[in-house]
C-alpha cells in the first residue's frame, strides 16, 4: 500500500479487523467481538455492525438483536462522563430513587440519555455490587457511596 493510502485507513478499522481475525476460529465469537469493538469505538456504530456481519457471515438482523438485548452494548456515542446509577435492592431501600430523581433534575435528562453539551450520560444499572455503601452511583467507574440527594451537585461539579 502506498503511504498516501495508509493515511486514509482508519486505525480503528484496522483494530476491528484484528479483533475479528482473532476470533475467526473460535466458536460463538459474536459477543466478545462486539465487546472489544465497543471498546475501540466507544459505542457500536452501524457501519461497524455491518462490517462485523460481512466478515463473520452472521446476519445483521441477528447482530442487531444481540446488541439490543444486552445492556452493555450501546448504539449511540456516550458523553464525556458516564454516570451509572445503581438501582439494586439495597440502594433502592436506602433511597436510590431519590438520588436518581435528583440526578435527572440536575442534568435534565432521563435514563439512557446524554446531556446536550455531551458532558454526561446517565444510565441506570441493576447492581454494581457495592451494596454495603448504598445508595451508590459510579461516574467513569469511580464509585460514590452513602449518597444523599444534596451531595449530588457537588459531585457532578468535579467532572468536566
Amino acid at each position: 500500500m502506498c503511504t498516501a493510502c495508509e493515511d486514509l485507513v482508519d486505525p480503528k478499522e484496522i483494530k476491528l479487523d484484528e479483533i475479528i481475525a482473532k476470533y475467526q476460529n473460535e466458536k460463538g465469537p459474536l459477543i466478545p467481538i462486539l465487546q472489544e469493538a465497543q471498546e475501540v469505538y466507544g459505542y457500536l456504530p452501524a457501519h461497524v455492525l455491518k462490517h462485523i456481519s460481512k466478515a463473520t457471515r452472521i446476519p445483521l438482523s441477528r447482530i442487531y438483536g444481540v446488541v439490543t438485548f444486552y445492556a452493555q452494548f450501546r448504539l449511540t456515542p456516550v458523553g464525556r462522563n458516564l454516570i451509572n446509577v445503581c438501582m439494586g435492592t439495597a440502594c433502592h431501600v436506602r433511597g436510590g430513587a431519590k438520588v436518581l430523581e435528583t440526578l435527572e433534575k440536575e442534568l435534565k435528562i432521563k435514563d439512557g440519555a446524554t446531556t446536550e453539551d455531551g458532558r454526561f450520560t446517565l444510565e441506570i444499572v441493576a447492581c454494581i455490587g457495592a451494596c454495603g455503601l448504598a445508595p451508590v452511583i459510579s461516574i467513569n467507574n469511580e464509585v460514590h457511596g452513602r449518597l444523599l440527594p444534596e451531595k449530588i451537585a457537588g459531585i457532578l461539579a468535579k467532572y468536566e
Binding site: 446476519p59 438482523s61 441477528r62 447482530i63 442487531y64 438483536g65 438485548f69
Partner: peptide, 20 residues
C-alpha cells in the same frame, strides 16, 4: 435461509423486524 428478520430489544419492548 435468509435471516432478514429477528427479535430486537427485550421484555415488553421486544420487537420483530429487520436489523434496525
Amino acid at each position: 435461509g435468509k435471516s432478514r428478520l429477528d427479535f430486537s430489544f427485550r421484555g415488553f419492548n421486544t420487537q420483530v423486524g429487520p436489523a434496525y
